[in-house]
Amino acid sequence: MKLARVVAELGLEALATGDLTREVGGGYCSDLLSDVLAHARPGDLWITHQRHLNVVAVAKLRDLAGVVFARGNRPSPDVVARAAAEGVNLFLSSEPAFEVAGRLHRLLHP
């Protein structure tokens, strides 16, 4: 499913957007950068409560479809600026990770 459709269906707020025509292969839910580096698959949409600057670097390295900051955990402007510069898609959701992951899963695997 295209990222643009996922964003619309889940009601995500766009913080930094590059390529919204990307295909979302699945989801990955984790607050541990090392875990995401080791286990997330390219094309995954990463759902996290983490908002460290390194989130952007990890998303880029793993070629993720984007990052959703859950439970309204808005990242600081320098994180958003870095993502915009790197072409990493960042989104915000007011829902906690469980809900975002649940809805994404229902969307991709009804």
């Binding site: 699945g26 989801g27 990955y28 839910c29 984790s30 286990h39 759902i47 439970r71 309204g72 955990n73 829902e95 906690p96 990770a97 469980f98 809900e99 992951a101 649940g102 809805r103 994404l104 899963h105 229902r106 695997h109």
Partner: peptide, 24 residues
């Protein structure tokens, strides 16, 4: 993994714990 676990439980009817009025 956590994503699939949340997905399956959500689709089975489990809902998220939430707290109102907490600004983060």
């Amino acid at each position: 993994d956590m994503y699939e676990t949340c997905g399956l439980l959500y689709q089975a009817g489990l809902r998220p714990a939430k707290r109102k009025g907490f600004r983060l």
